[in-house]
Design a protein around this nucleic acid. Structure first.
Length: 729
RNA sequence: GCGCGCUUAGCUCAGCGGUAGAGCAUCGCAUUCACAUUGCGAGGGCCGCAGGUUCAAAUCCUGCAGCGCGCACCA
């Protein structure tokens, strides 16, 4: 048989993917399972970290797909009941912002002009129109996901899971409504969680001043305008200002009446600044916490649009304008003692880039430090324990430390968001009654749950649902089991949960991994996965982050068109251990395209030289040795895969195929094939065919397209589709 | 401030106790022979610095430096 001279990925990939998909073997229910020592076949499951439903494939998701496909294809060939469950994420804030922007551009209207219902309709339409893109791109990578189990974070089943999870946690008293200082994004007009903040270093001025001529303690601040909201000053309980603790001062500060209490608090660092902290409980997370400890008043002076709410000259002024006014006033009064230039970290919102304004707001929270009834543990404990006792293994291991560190510093999780796209909070209000449930209670229906939230305002009339939606990570946190049908007791849930591996980027260890552990432990009393494999960030060849603004984007789709999916996959895997960032370049991808072609041509040669090959022919001692050496390599590669060293496995196979099989074995075989000794020739033919077949199997998880295509051409009896062939060891 | 990681050939990285490795790049040579998306060959490294442990250290320990990252702080 003779093949074309070069491997043509464009002609091959779509056809092969279709073949796989139509075979039904992506669905583990259809797999020819192998019983292991009389026991039923083991299962192996991965849920795909859902890409943004309206997104396009970038190198990061390409890496994710490549790694997970390697794992699942390997396990499938080992005869396991291998499930890789695909899905997409609604990416609430990002998607809504995108649609709002489009509408504003085209129609000049904002969301309030449209109204909630209409906006949601538009978003759904946008999602529907765009989701095919990401799904076809997942296919293009060769991902062997079970499409029959596809899930979307906003579909019917996931909605039910989210609602059930919320109601159960509310009933367990772990969800509460509280008026607390939250991170408010004035640009996005919503709260965000601590993890959605990105700190940016910026130059700033540190001002040292006194509230008044008779005030005994100087105070430093970078935000003088917030001082209008000060209600206290904290000093160290044993420090130089100890004698003032307990005193109260009433003063007039820039036109505003202040009542300042001096309190002693351990958290004050005597060495820093003036050794005393002006407390603005309404506009600083830390000050709020100190204020809570000492019963200080919370005085809000900045609104949701980052404008001043105080009466007089400053009313409705931007905070930056108010700052100048306060500084002028301080100077005129002779109260400004020092002005220094410093750099400070400014909190900005990850999604919108807006400067975060801490504000007191009535929001919904999940408490992480409260004992769960009947379990004697907090949600924090549930997150910590499985990692601490080894039920969950994090790879690379050093991320465990980072994980614990994060948990130790964890505050309650603010889960309400002031956007419209997402799972709406299943809380209903009528007068001072609060009811938690998916549907509003019928007025003559069952009595609502007792209201634990003191101080709800009375307003007669109908039950009205809370207007907010849940943080998108709330639904993502249920992903390992909501995708398997929870809260129904499905067979899938029983069979595939806990999942085996959660493979994702280290950048969402906290956002997602920790919260999945929390939710699974709480709702199922089970770990969500046994192993967490964290991959690095994909960077350009200079090590810079890939971003639109840098113009250094390497588009995986374009690379796949040019060089083939197999080449893109291996170039992302080779030379990269878990957790380390990956430098990618077109250059590297081209190198692996050449490798695809090398595989093609070794097969081409073998097929040309093995007409009427006898697979029963006796092997010469030399050829047996070649088979033994390949056997040893198989064992090594298997071990590397089992221990998550995919880069090593890929590199070893690359080296073997190119520099041992093609350069040495093939070259030496040419002599034997041309020789007169029939036995030697028959042995060589069989050996070549066997080495080729084994190489294709070992390479298949890494380069599924070219290997499947070639394997289909081998004249072997009893052959199956390569995807479900037995692994060589 | 606390923590984590990295530092090995021009570049990207493996190796992690026993005489320095790969890929790419560079430089020669070859070519109707499976593949020019090729073959053969060559050059190139005080394995960040300083100590220590050891018969033996790129590899283990300590300290330092540079780079990157996370968390906290940022009064």
């Amino acid at each position: 048989m003779e093949l074309p001279k070069n491997y043509n990925h464009l002609e091959t990939e779509g056809r092969i993917y279709k073949l796989w998909e139509e075979s039904g073997f992506f669905n583990p229910d259809n797999l020819p399972l192998r019983r292991a020592q009389g026991k039923p076949a083991k299962t192996f499951s991965i849920v795909l970290p859902p890409p943004n439903v309206t997104g396009i494939l970038h190198m990061g998701s390409a890496l994710m797909l490549a790694l997970e496909d390697i794992m699942i294809r390997y396990q499938r060939m080992r005869g396991k009941r291998a499930l890789w469950l695909p899905g997409t994420d609604s990416a609430a804030i990002a998607t809504q912002a995108r649609v709002e922007k489009d509408i504003h551009k085209k129609e000049g209207e904002n969301r309030h002009d449209l109204g909630r219902e209409e906006l949601l309709k538009r978003i759904d339409k946008f999602v529907e129109e765009n989701k095919a893109t990401i799904l076809s791109q997942i296919r293009a990578m060769g991902a062997s996901v079970d499409w029959s189990r596809y899930a979307y974070t906003m579909d019917e089943k996931r909605y039910k899971a989210v609602m059930t999870a919320f109601v159960r946690m509310y009933e367990a008293d772990l969800i509460y409504r509280g008026n607390r200082v939250v991170n408010w994004d004035p640009k996005g007009q919503t709260t965000i969680s601590d993890d959605e903040i990105v700190y940016e270093e910026r130059p700033a001025k540190l001002y040292t001043f006194r509230y008044g001529k008779d005030f005994p303690i100087p105070i430093a601040t970078t935000r003088p305008e917030t001082k209008l909201g000060d209600t206290g000053v904290a000093v160290h309980p044993e420090g130089k200002y100890k004698k003032y603790i307990g005193q109260e001062f009433n003063l007039e500060f820039c036109g505003e009446k202040l009542n300042i209490k001096i309190v002693g608090d351990e958290s004050v660092d005597q060495e820093f600044g003036t050794g005393a902290v002006g407390l603005t409980p309404a506009h600083s997370m830390i000050d709020w916490e100190i204020g809570q400890r000492h019963g200080l008043a919370v005085k809000q002076i900045i609104n949701e649009y980052a404008r001043m709410t105080v009466d007089g000259e400053m009313k409705d002024k931007k905070t930056t304008e108010a700052r100048e006014i306060v500084i002028d006033w301080l100077k005129k009064q002779g109260l400004l003692e020092k002005e220094e230039s410093i750099t400070q970290n400014v909190a900005t919102a990850e999604r919108t880039g807006g400067i975060v304004e801490p504000l007191p707001k009535l929001q919904w929270f999940i408490t992480v430090n409260k004992e769960i009834g009947g379990r004697g543990k907090t949600l924090k404990d549930l997150m910590r324990e499985p990692v601490a006792n080894g039920d969950i293994r994090i790879i690379p291991e050093h991320y465990s430390k980072t994980y614990f560190h994060w948990i130790d510093n964890l505050r309650d999780w603010c889960i309400s968001r002031q956007i419209w796209f997402g799972h709406r909070i299943p809380i209903w209000y009528k007068g001072d009654e609060i009811y938690c449930g998916v549907e509003a209670p019928k007025d003559d229906g069952p009595a609502p749950l007792p209201d634990r939230q003191a101080g709800a305002k009375a307003s007669a009339g109908k039950w009205e649902q809370d207007p907010d939606v849940l943080d998108t990570w709330f639904s993502s946190a249920l992903w390992t089991f909501s995708t398997l049908g929870w809260p129904e007791k499905t067979a899938d849930l029983k069979t595939y949960h806990p999942t085996d591996i959660l493979e994702t980027g280290y950048d969402i260890l906290f956002f997602w991994v920790a919260r999945m552990i929390m939710m699974s432990e709480f709702h199922l009393q089970q770990v969500p996965f046994r192993t967490v494999y964290l991959h690095g960030l994909v960077r350009d060849e200079k090590g810079q982050k890939i971003s639109k603004s840098l113009g250094n984007n390497i588009d995986p789709l374009e690379m796949m068109r040019k060089y083939g999916a197999d080449a893109v996959r291996v170039s992302l895997i080779a030379g990269t251990a878990a957790g380390t960032d990956i430098k990618i370049s077109e250059h590297k991808i081209r190198g692996y395209r050449n490798f695809s072609n090398k595989i093609w041509n070794t097969a081409r040669f073998v097929l040309m030289s093995t007409d009427n090959v006898n697979m029963e022919a006796e092997l010469t001692a030399e050829d047996r040795m070649i088979m033994d050496e390949l056997g040893a390599l198989s064992v090594e590669v298997t071990k590397d895969i089992e221990e998550y060293r995919f880069y090593l496995a890929a590199e070893k196979l690359y080296h073997y195929v190119w520099h041992t099989f093609a350069d040495k074995i093939l070259e030496e075989a040419k002599v034997k094939l041309a020789g007169k000794d029939a036995k030697v020739k028959a042995s060589a033919q069989r050996m070549l065919m066997e080495v080729l077949a084994t190489c294709l199997k070992l390479l298949h998880p890494f380069m599924p397209f070219v290997t499947e295509e070639l394997y289909g051409k081998l004249p072997l009896s009893g052959k199956k589709m390569l995807m479900i062939e037995s692994w060589p060891t």
